[in-house]
Nucleic acid binder design. Structure first.
Lengths: 151, 151
DNA sequence: TATTGTTATACTCTATAACTATA
DNA sequence: TATAGTTATAGAGTATAACAATA
């Protein structure tokens, strides 16, 4: 049930994002950078960013190029180690992320309105809990029979 | 949150399915055929089956070929209209589906055990409700601003 | 002519491997 | 030599278009 739902949600979000000139990965990157911007652990390397959003490091390069070209983020070499790139969101990037998020949230609210109020809270709480479970643990959950072994 | 969770769940299920010699689509087909087998509306055409599981009709052909070759389903021309193929699960197919489902459910239970009992029920109820919403309505939910128009 | 299943083709996404520049 | 980022290449998955059989 989760997979088809995710597909439908993604399909519903894409037009909204495109209205903001964003691809899915572009949006994901913006969100990730904005979130860590508030935290105390700034993302220092592109590889770390890629891993944190579950993407390959080679996959986000074009995305970063585009976002940088449009002035949504800044990418400058770390003076301490000039191999790594420091990634920071610009004001425009943060604003765009927020307006896109607001649009998406509107759609989500409309969908969540279909749920009984009690279930709605439980659903969101459960979703947060399950999302926080590392993928490795989810995979381990049923692979323990060991009858299946990844190559 | 839904998309990454779905990805993780799918990744966790694949090894289990492979232990039963099933691909993701093979399992989805088995489930779809088994479910409608109990209902009164048997799937009469491959195209209808494909649509019901959100796949392209060309995508399930190889899957059906494989399942048929392994004696898990029967595919015979409809006497009334010899263009369409009647699809029915064999006993072996139904048994395989059930044992695979049981394995997957075990993994799911282990994951759901992480949730507070109250949230767990709300989560599953909400999931069922949201899954039942047609994809078209989910898409319409936020595309109404009309600033985004599919090409 | 229209439709079902099929095959062949092209396209999109994603991952793997080779390259550069720094260390 | 090892690592961060980049580029180039190959692979999987998917959809689109052409085909044969039947209506």
């Amino acid at each position: 049930m989760v997979t088809p739902l995710g597909r439908a949600l993604l399909a519903a979000e894409l037009p909204v994002l495109r209205a903001h000139g964003l691809s899915m990965w572009g949006y994901v990157v913006l969100v990730a950078l904005d979130d860590v911007g508030l935290a105390d652990r700034p993302v220092r390397t592109q590889a770390a960013l890629a891993q944190s959003i579950g993407a390959d490091k080679t996959r986000i390069i074009g995305v970063l190029d585009d976002l940088q070209r449009r002035g949504l983020l800044q990418r400058r070499p770390d003076p301490a180690d000039r191999r790594v790139h420091l990634l920071t969101l610009t004001g425009a990037g943060r604003r765009l992320r927020q307006s896109a998020s607001a649009d998406i949230r509107r759609g989500e609210e409309r969908l969540l309105a279909r749920l009984p109020p009690g279930d709605r809270d439980g659903f969101l709480r459960a979703l947060r809990i399950l999302s926080a479970v590392p993928a490795a643990e989810i995979a381990a959950a049923d692979g323990e029979g060991d009858s299946a072994r990844p190559p």
